[in-house]
Design a protein around this nucleic acid. Structure first.
Lengths: 342, 342
DNA sequence: TTGAAAGCGCTACCAG
DNA sequence: CTGGTAGCGCTTTCAA
């Protein structure tokens, strides 16, 4: 009960292995009749070409590496899922690598190199490589598509992080808030790349432009998990000297802030407005106002850019693109209570 | 700037390719001095063996396929992440395949077959294969480890789904509730396998044993997303004829129920107790009482079982195991309001 | 349009 | 302990 090889198919169809190879891959220059015979033989034997052998011979593994800082976070799973679907439709598989808990020093060690040797291309999602790491990747000479963080001239898919934070901040200001807090300042060695600083900057810039006072003690560091945001917000909101509105760098953190507010008996939005960024599944459920980005579209775009780089899609797709975001007002934001001026 | 091959290393080290291969894989029967020379040469050239070629020659690809019904759901990402970490430490990579949106008829098509041909083993997470699908997989003769759903005698890692639902239900009954609802009855063609029916059964059985009335109209169908649970709960809870407590088959659904309650102005837990199963990150943040299961441990166990099947870990690990669960009381459950008897 | 044959880069067997 | 060499199963010239 051994797996059939291309030779078995050739024998059964009465042709050479070369012809089988051509016929099965749909190359032209194969007589339709011959092709049908080959396909029938292959079907009869349940033949599937060995990806290993095909890869070795052709130099393309049909494997794409996707590198992310985390695996178990909303943004990344949505992105991954979208990327995987596109490649699946093109007979490619995804090799996942999350950098979680890996310091830059060790994270590009042997395993990763093996991965790099085995993939046809690399999609780098929201990770900012250090110089030495970038060197390794450059030396590999692999096609690269970047998501969220620029990488060495590779096509970059993303949103305007500064802008989306500005949009959220402006929404709060437009509602009349002047006591604004922010959750999501990157902790040292944050693995998220440029997104955290950019979003913080969008917040800071907007306050500045609107001439609203910036309270540094209302800017919370966070590892971008709901739990950490919850813990931070619990402390911040316990003080009577607290903001009337908070922008969180992601919906997951915003949910943590909402939970903290509830824990303290603060009503959202009457006592505290909360706005996030992303449009997480649970954001809708919890009525969280947010700045929506289309992660699935970005994932698809990144995948198509890679396909283009590999010559498997129109080369015009191998380009950078900035996706629009928009405000999605729900029920977690409203004007500040009149009886509690800043 | 071509990638160096094993021949380059052999040349530089002044030995045969066979010796290079042995030295680099740490096989014995290589003179320490020779080995050092080979390793030095390899390092100097930045040599990494081609996984394709090694796989072709050795018959093992160091790739493990993981099949799940969904990619972007808490349980599955946690599980995946845990599995991946174990294999990473053993120089293996994970090939992800989610069956999302695939009907049984099409989901085992070409891509999947390609995947099956390329992996050394299959970890099947919470999917119940139909007969024809099971046939395909059996015919492949691949080592299989099952998680959550039994598969053809393969080592099975999981929890007692009936029992964990029973535990949650009993908690509500112990608090004095007698008007109980359940969210998470599988919709037709649910892709989650046996978990939904089992948990529902745990709920039903426990009511029965406690002689509590079972209200079929308080059992909600759900696709196991928070959004769907939210929608269902919104309808159920809008009626004055509603339960005083709800068990959800997962924390994600429980969060949806909590959100619906809030939307309707019902206080949790005073007006409605809610309990979930899992111990989702956000469960803690939102104070959701839950029946905790250790997904990471299960993932690790599944990975180790696979390693054992492959002869890469102690064979005693290639066994089935049922992981314990325990009640984690938080603030979403309390006795029913005295003024609102069933 | 088809076939023959030379690799792809490595492992594993057999000698020595 | 080391080297030679025959594959692993496919793709891809080059001829026919």
């Amino acid at each position: 009960m051994n797996q059939p090889t291309i030779a078995d198919v050739a024998r059964l169809a009465g042709v050479s292995v070369a012809t089988v190879s051509r016929a099965l891959r749909g190359l032209d220059k194969v007589h339709p009749e011959t092709r049908d015979r080959v396909i029938a033989a292959a079907a009869q034997l349940d033949y599937i070409a060995s990806p290993e052998a095909a890869g070795l011979a052709s130099g393309r593994s049909r494997l794409i590496g996707v590198i992310t800082p985390f695996m178990a976070r909303w943004f990344f799973t949505e992105m991954m899922s979208a990327i995987e679907k596109v490649f699946r439709d093109h007979q490619h598989h995804i090799l996942l690598m999350d950098l979680e808990e890996r310091s830059p020093e060790v994270r590009l060690a042997l395993t990763q190199n093996m991965m790099f040797k085995r993939v046809d291309g690399l999609i780098v999602v929201n990770v900012a490589f250090r110089g030495s790491e970038a060197e390794v990747i450059k030396r590999l000479n692999l096609p690269v598509v970047a998501v969220g963080n620029a990488f060495n001239g590779a096509p970059l898919v993303g949103i305007d992080d500064v802008g989306c934070a500005a949009l959220g901040t402006q929404h709060l200001i437009d509602l009349g808030h002047t006591a604004l807090g922010y959750v999501g300042k990157a902790r040292p060695h944050n693995p998220h790349g440029k997104t955290p600083p950019d979003r913080l900057q969008g917040f800071v810039d907007t306050l500045h432009e609107a001439d609203v006072r910036l309270r540094h003690d209302w800017i919370l560091e966070c590892d971008w998990s709901a739990a950490d945001a919850y813990a931070g917000a619990l402390k911040l909101l316990a003080s009577p000297d607290r903001p009337t509105a908070i922008l969180a760098g992601s919906d997951e953190m915003a949910l943590g802030v909402m939970a903290a507010a509830r824990e303290l008996g603060l009503r959202v939005p009457q006592d505290l407005s909360v706005i996030g960024i992303d449009d997480h599944d649970l954001a809708r459920v919890f009525g969280l106002t947010t700045v929506r980005q289309d992660v699935v579209e970005q994932g698809r775009a990144a995948a198509h850019a890679m396909l283009a780089l590999l010559g498997l899609a129109d080369e015009s797709l191998a380009r950078s693109s900035v996706y629009p975001v928009h405000l999605l007002p729900r029920t977690s934001t409203c004007p500040p209570a009149a009886d509690r001026p800043i």
